[in-house]
Design a protein around this nucleic acid. Structure first.
Length: 853
RNA sequence: GCCCCCAUAGCCCAAUCGGCAGAGGCAGACGACUUAAAAUCGUCCCAGUCAGGGUUCGAAUCCCUGUGGGGGCACCA
């Protein structure tokens, strides 16, 4: 849009600044970190690397703006800051886009990377571009394969059969997200069924305890929300394993329970229909039970995951015609099969205690199974249930006469609270906690059970039947045996896509690449490569280590460099990765620690989750339209967008783009830039000669800003910076004038502070002020303590907590003196009136509170 | 159903330890400059902190209850 050329001096022109300084920075490359003689202390600041699905969007703009504030801040504080960038460039969206366009995923991906890189450079983020990496380069994914082999050697990578969602029309595996709520495929509309496939898993459950317990180390430096989500996800349950003998079977069946205290209340057992155990039990069952079970199993496998997880769905199940024996009392109980029991949690079987568990109760009521109460939750238990009324005379808890009958069989509500054990033999009278302790002792003594833990966390399924990922470095010999590819033969690179049909067919397209998949072994026999590729979360689980030496062809990472820089001092990224990526990276770090490759057990010492940028109250997406980053930058300039991101509010809060004002930011930046143009003194000017009032404002800012940045209160720093700009403007226009040393000092401080948020404007100001580039490498100035001393403070005088007077006093005033002054105040005397003074609180020099009656 | 977070001017947001409710911005009003407008500069306006209770000399801040909003997990035995 053409503007009239102003005749009153240069205007703020962000596009021109961006062009000018981007060229200069590209020449200078000021953020390189590879100087071995650099003696500055080190910091590793990392932004979660982007997925090149298109150009950068508003979400990237926020994340990278905030991460860059942190990186630039520590550089300014005298640190050698490693701030690298790379691309998480394998994955489904690229493959799908390539299929749609009929091109190689490589073409599409690397074109997007080029586009994002150009945008990122314009965005002025202070990256060390020499360390750029792409996970889809063979030079990178070679080391995914190396990592896989390391896990395989340690027994942490294994193959097993598991149930997956299967679209019978498209002949493909579906992600859970692709299954619609009605249980049909979002592509073909066919009813999704379960299919058993053999897949590779990483044994993350071996690390469950450490992943959970080490979260305590991150307390205070990671958002509490993320810590809570990770704990929740790992989901450790403490309880016991109990062994039940089965009539007509040699082997016992073990169940896991968190309520071993209710063992006397067990009235039946339930096994997961899709478990091996169910298959085995039904095989030995009387004939008449078999067909109903088979029918039920078919029905269960047709049930979609979403439907199955609906806890309000009526319970279903069939009896197996088999019986178990309760080890504590010898009771014979029937065994049922029902899909509310999961085959992959615990042992795939539960002891049902309908009186004290909602699911068991629902099932028992539906199928008319006995319900036996073994915990009296009406009974007062010492220190546990304070809900009973206290008799004021005796001070004792009282059972009301009209206490409602709590019979789960009739109410449908199980008794899950605290209580005293009943109908439980030697456990009678014990509290829940004590009963659990005692029953475990008894079970251990008799060899029928033991204390046990279980986790919600499942092993990490890493196989993907897709092309655009890291090939799994495993061969299958003719006899079916498994041969890990020797390390020196890595990388196994992806074949060309010519002649390959990338359409998902439930089997990896790589399986059809005959030349690629068939291998002749040294002994002349043949083998086939595993045609699957790895989950791309494998790529991102260790990429922060590859930045140490991204071009090293001899090792995944140099342990000495890792020792220098890692772990990451500050990780910045979206909360959408609160569980998966962060959990996987933590897991792989612990594995590498155990293998002796790294010396730390947590990869990210501190974590900042920025919020989302919303438009019209909802998340922006391509389909919904919303705000386009390129358009915003064209209209307001990079600096205004970056500043808006920092100023909008606390970084972890979402930003409603309609609530903030990039135009206001732009106006402020122009106002700041004008200060530099107005300064008439030379850089050599003597600070001490400057206006004392303005100097005090400047130095208070110098003292406050670092703490605010470190507390991530970027919005407050910007507000303080606006104050400083306003004070400087005033000093120029109606104070000591543009030649005053304090005006230069203040303006230089503005440029230094602005370099964190608006690098282009800051750089231009710095040059206008007579300094060589780049402002980003100048240090922060220390506040002069003599300028921070207040000459007088306003003391507040309250009567009964209400402000009645203010008095100017010396900051070092004696408390007794301050009280005397306060009591002498006319307003105070009037306020006290006839009342009696009962207490006087003096907090010299700020406050006096006189309590009267 | 379980767990976590939030609520301060019309709007976005500040308020180290419990101590003057307001730093900054947006929007709005007025003024200066201008032939006029834009830009710029300046001045002003605005809530008693979601509701109720408690602790305290004193509560936006701590505790309890409720309401409203957001998020996570969920047939995990």
């Amino acid at each position: 849009m053409p503007h009239d050329v102003p005749d009153d001096g240069p205007r703020y022109d962000p596009a021109q600044l961006q062009e000018k300084w981007q060229l200069r920075w590209d020449e200078m490359r000021p953020f390189r970190t590879n100087d071995p003689k650099d003696t500055r202390p080190r910091k590793y600041i990392l932004d979660m690397f982007p997925y090149p699905s298109g150009d950068l969007h508003m979400g990237h703009a926020e994340a990278f703006a905030l991460g860059d504030v942190v990186a630039r801040y520590w550089r300014q504080q005298g640190f050698n800051v490693l701030h690298p960038i790379g691309w998480d460039s394998f994955g489904l969206p690229a493959e799908n886009a390539a299929i749609k366009r009929g091109v190689d995923p490589r073409e599409w991906t690397y074109a997007n990377i080029e586009q994002q890189k150009t945008s990122m450079k314009r965005y002025g983020v202070s990256f060390d571009w020499d360390r750029e990496l792409h996970t889809s380069d063979p030079e990178y994914y070679k080391w995914n394969q190396w990592l896989f082999l390391k896990l395989y050697e340690k027994g942490l990578a294994y193959r097993k059969e598991s149930w997956v969602n299967w679209d019978p029309v498209d002949q493909t595996v579906l992600a859970n997200e692709q299954v619609l709520p009605d249980g049909t495929s979002d592509r073909s509309g066919a009813v999704v069924v379960k299919k058993k496939l053999t897949q590779w898993y990483f044994k993350i459950t071996d690390y469950a305890d450490r992943l959970l317990d080490d979260l305590n180390q991150l307390e205070g430096t990671w958002p509490t929300k993320v810590l809570a989500m990770q704990r929740n996800w790992i989901g450790r349950s403490i309880g016991a394993d109990v062994d039940f003998e089965i009539e007509g079977r040699d082997e016992k069946v073990t169940v896991f329970t968190t309520r071993p205290d209710t063992l006397y209340g067990v009235t039946f057992m339930v096994v997961a229909p899709d478990s091996d155990l169910a298959a085995e039990l039904i095989a030995g069952a009387p004939e008449k039970y078999r067909q109903p079970f088979e029918d039920y199993l078919v029905q269960v496998q047709k049930t979609s995951e979403i439907e199955r997880q609906d806890a309000s769905r009526p319970k279903t199940g069939v009896p197996l015609g088999r019986y178990a024996i309760n080890p504590i009392n010898g009771e014979v109980i029937p065994i049922w099969s029902a899909d509310y029991v999961l085959s992959d949690y615990g042992h795939g079987a539960v002891m049902a205690v309908p009186a004290h568990d909602q699911r068991d109760l629902d099932f028992a009521r539906k199928f008319k199974l006995p319900i036996r109460v073994v915990v009296d939750t009406n009974a007062p238990v010492t220190g546990a249930i304070p809900v009973l009324p206290i008799n004021p005379d005796t001070g004792e808890a009282e059972l009301p006469d009209d206490l409602p009958a709590l019979d789960p069989a009739s109410t449908g509500v199980p008794l899950t609270g605290e209580g005293r054990l009943i109908n439980s033999g030697s456990l009678d009278g014990l509290s829940k906690t004590n009963a659990i302790k005692k029953i475990i002792e008894q079970l251990e003594a008799s060899g029928n059970g033991r204390a046990a833990k279980n986790y919600r966390l499942r092993d990490w399924l890493i196989s993907r039947q897709r092309f655009w990922g890291t090939p799994i470095p495993i061969l299958y010999a003719e006899d079916g045996s498994l041969i890990p590819v020797p390390e020196e033969q890595l990388p196994i690179t992806l074949p060309p896509t010519e002649g390959l049909d990338l359409q998902p067919r439930g089997q990896s397209p790589l399986g059809a690449a005959e030349e690629w998949v068939n291998v002749t072994l040294p002994d002349g026999s043949t083998a086939r490569r595993d045609p699957d590729t790895m989950d791309t979360f494998v790529d991102s689980s260790w990429y922060f280590l590859r930045f140490m030496n991204p071009n090293d062809a001899t090792q995944a990472f140099d342990p000495r460099e890792v020792d220098k820089w890692a772990p990451v001092d500050q990780y910045v990224g979206g909360v959408e990765h609160a569980i998966l990526h962060l959990l996987y990276a933590r897991f792989i770090t612990k594995v590498l620690f155990d293998l002796g490759y790294v010396t730390f057990t947590e990869p990210f010492s501190a974590l900042l989750n920025q919020g989302m940028v919303l438009s019209g109250g909802s998340k922006m997406s391509k389909s919904k339209g919303g705000v386009n980053l390129g358009d915003e930058i064209d209209e307001h300039g990079v600096d205004a967008i970056r500043l808006t991101m920092a100023f909008a509010g606390p970084p972890e809060d979402d930003i409603n783009w309609e609530d903030v004002s990039p135009a206001g930011s732009s106006k402020f930046l122009a106002r700041a830039g004008r200060l530099a143009q107005d300064v008439t003194s030379a850089p050599e000017v003597e600070w001490k000669s400057g206006d004392a009032d303005l100097r005090r404002v400047t130095h208070r800012f110098l003292a406050e800003a670092p703490g605010l940045v470190e507390a991530f209160k970027f919005n407050v720093v910007v507000a303080r910076l606006m104050e400083l700009v306003n004070a400087t403007r005033k000093a120029i226009d109606s104070g000591p004038g543009p030649a005053d040393a304090a005006v230069r000092e203040a303006t230089e401080t503005v440029a230094l502070a602005l370099s964190l948020f608006a690098p282009y404007t800051a750089e231009e100001m710095w040059e206008t002020l007579g300094y060589p580039a780049t402002v980003a490498l100048y240090g922060w100035r220390k506040a002069d303590p003599t300028l921070l001393v207040e000459t007088s403070v306003t003391a507040i005088v309250q009567v009964n907590g209400k402000v009645r007077d203010r008095i100017e006093v010396s900051p070092t005033i004696d408390p007794a003196e301050l009280e005397k002054l306060a009591r002498a105040s006319a307003a105070v005397i009037r306020s006290i009136g006839e009342s009696e003074v009962v207490n006087v609180i003096v907090r010299a020099p700020r406050l006096v509170n006189i309590a009267v009656k």
